[in-house]
Design a protein around this nucleic acid. Structure first.
Lengths: 232, 232
DNA sequence: CCTCGCATGTGACGCCCGTCACAGGGTTTC
DNA sequence: GAAACCCTGTGACGGGCGTCACATGCGAGG
């Protein structure tokens, strides 16, 4: 997969209401330029310095991290309206994880200086703190360790939510095009590829059909119910 | 264990240099009052509103969370110089976890309003953001899932570091008094009590000796080496 | 069109670990 | 001081899941 990128230096013609729940960001995006990445492209690379922030305008991306072991862990998925790479920018560190597009993505690129200036000028640090605290809360919640099937179901629900509006409608559900192998789902759940295969087979009863480069969810409500076994 | 508490309304006669790495906090603590909790006491209770922040001056505490399932997960340990309960205060939510003293603790209590006023007056939001980003980084790192023995070793190293200076010296190491059952260690690692017993037996070869209410680490360097198997 | 590579399905085997069970010893409570 | 409770160690048993292995089939590139 080549990192095909097309640039659109003109200001964005789009509001971004739900970015961190603050309409304020729309103004900031006027200072950014838009960039498109095709599926599979690398948006942020682990180990590089935090020179800029990305606002994900459209598409879904995966956040993964390579350990010194060599093995890879898939930490999270991100969808439209979310900020990417803000950690390294806000604490002057290097990127602790890589971000790759698992569907075609549109991002707004904000240089570190511009981002920090904007945050300072508009007194957005309290907003950033609230945002960070929310992330901490969900990060604690993410550390579950139960059966594989409900965890996989929860992951698929999350992906479906992030992809809301995208994909093509099917009988009673939607099919989403996502570049996610069984291996990557396995890395996300902390299990083996084999187990994911089995779990997906089990979820077929809940009208989940995972193809090679796409996932179809026939009955999202049923899937949510299957995932609900997680936190009781 | 009764929540025996003795109050010391007088200002603290102690600096707190390492709290979040900022000497600035010393001033804030002048507005706080000091409180002592005996081992086992509950400092913060899950579900209550975030009315105040605690600065942990001395001692070690455990952060645990009860799921709707009923089962308990031990999320983290905190030591001297760390802030407790800042999440609920900064995002106006309820406490998402409980905090209990696993050794005798001294904390400084800061009312929410005073804390927020202080943060605003001294422009500490950037500091809080950096702090939150650091927490996010380590939170991602915490999600390992390898063998039990190195994970237990890492947990014990963390506890030893938090207890630095406390405990009584033994031959080549230190013995720390900590109210931690095998069950709780198991909840922390996401395994069963049985497995913890086996792992502790395995670590006895590395001069770890866990008693009923204390843990002795004979050779911290060796333990660090055992824990190093985690991230390669 | 053919070939190579990669992702996937499927099975066998084995081990780690969860669960259940019981015994012993320390701690608390009356 | 005695009893009840909790924490702990230890063993047996079973199952879920990792690992290894191989067959298949889609896709990419020549």
């Amino acid at each position: 997969m080549t990192d095909h990128v097309s640039r659109t230096p003109a200001p964005l013609g789009r509001t971004l209401r739900h970015l961190m729940g603050e309409p304020v960001w729309t103004g900031m995006l006027a200072e950014a330029y838009e960039r498109r990445h095709s599926i599979g492209a690398t948006l942020l690379r682990q180990g590089e310095p935090g020179t800029h922030v990305l606002a994900l305008l459209a598409g879904v991306a995966k956040v993964s991290r390579q350990e010194r072991n060599g093995d890879v862990r898939l930490l999270a998925f991100r969808g439209p309206g979310e900020l990417l790479g803000e950690v390294a920018v806000l604490d002057d560190g290097v990127r602790s994880a890589s971000v790759q597009a698992i569907s075609d993505c549109t991002v707004a690129v904000l240089a570190k200086a511009a981002f920090l200036r904007f945050v300072a000028e508009r007194d957005l640090f309290p907003v950033m703190v609230r945002y960070a605290m929310g992330r901490l809360r969900e990060s604690d919640l993410a550390r579950t360790g139960g059966d594989v099937v409900p965890r996989l179901a929860a992951a698929l629900v999350a992906l479906a939510d992030l992809s809301a509006g995208a994909g093509v409608a099917t009988a009673g559900g939607r099919r989403i095009e996502l570049a996610l192998t069984r291996d990557e789902l396995a890395q996300h759940l902390g299990v083996s590829r084999n187990t994911v295969t089995a779990a997906l087979a089990a979820l077929a009863a809940h009208r989940v059909d995972a193809g090679r480069k796409s996932i179809a969810v026939g009955d999202l409500a049923a899937l949510r119910r299957a995932a609900a076994a997680l936190h009781g």
